[in-house]
Nucleic acid binder design. Structure first.
Lengths: 155, 155
DNA sequence: AAACAATCGTTGACTTTTTCAATGATCCGT
DNA sequence: ACGGATCATTGAAAAAGTCAACGATTGTTT
């Protein structure tokens, strides 16, 4: 419920033309958000990325590690590390791919799903915290635009 | 004019709940954008960050390194490295702070401004490329929302 | 005005993250 | 059945981030 972490006041330099560059805006909001998210997830021994993997493992979509790497914009070797950690903690398991036996499908355990439920609540709170300056409709619109910019069309 | 770098098709995993998390959306769009931007700036020997510093040096706002660090969400020591590089290349100079002699004000040289003009054009093209899926109005709205999320109010 | 704590840029050490090539197992096309 | 591609994994190398300490300077307290 506390509101901290994001700039409260418009900094002097935001007046510069660069204050309108998408790249910078994304970098800043992403940086501030990661801080908040990682802080919120720390109680569960998770970070943004391990949480992402856990979420997808709980999604029922049965992602392979390769899909995780592509979707999360990570190197495959980074996914190995993330899954190693989650598996060691009994939150996730590697199952053999169904059509492709090279691939490993990441699925959640019962504990993993319990953990995810709790962590999800914390993350949603953090997200709300990050977007306090926006109304509910604006937040929805922001997400819609981000999704559209990423994978076009949809709705 | 080429359209490459961002996902063209909606990936299977985007259906998961996480496909609506601001954190992930920001991370992905930021990652894809950085790739595009750095590629566009490579011709000038610049990267996203050195370009940001150069832009602010050209802004007339006379930023100190501390302000740059805060604004760009960087550690002060990272700013030292960035300015070192730009200064070595004669694009930027360190001037003594006016009220505070500890601070160094970063100002552009004539060459720096020429370089910036050219690089700016390349970056704007890259940005346009990144947001092809959005209409002009949507792009503006996206920027507005990002700014508002970061520093509230305004308009 | 003298002493004190705080801030600025800088350096260097340290950790974390990213990147990349190589490997065995498996898949696919011919 | 052969050859080339893809998967997860490993390990090494490079890059980026973090952090504490320093001299110089500022502002504050006495």
């Amino acid at each position: 419920m506390a509101t901290l972490g994001t700039d409260v006041q418009t900094p002097r330099l935001a007046a510069a033309r660069i204050g309108n560059d998408v790249g910078l805006l994304l970098a800043k909001l992403h940086a501030a958000g990661s801080l908040l998210n990682n802080k919120a997830l720390a109680d569960f021994g998770l970070r943004e990325r391990s949480f992402s993997v856990l979420t997808l493992a709980c999604s029922g979509l049965e992602p392979t590690q390769r899909e995780l790497a592509d979707f999360l914009s990570l190197d495959p070797s980074q996914v190995v590390t993330l899954v190693d950690d989650l598996e060691r903690r009994g939150l996730v398991e590697r199952a053999q791919g169904k059509q492709d036996r090279r691939a490993k499908i990441i699925v959640s355990t019962a504990e993993g799903r319990k953990m995810h439920t709790k962590a999800r609540a914390a993350l949603d709170a953090a997200e709300l915290d990050q977007l306090t300056a926006l109304s509910g409709e604006e937040s929805q619109e922001l997400k819609r635009l981000l999704r559209k910019a990423l994978w076009g069309a949809a709705e």
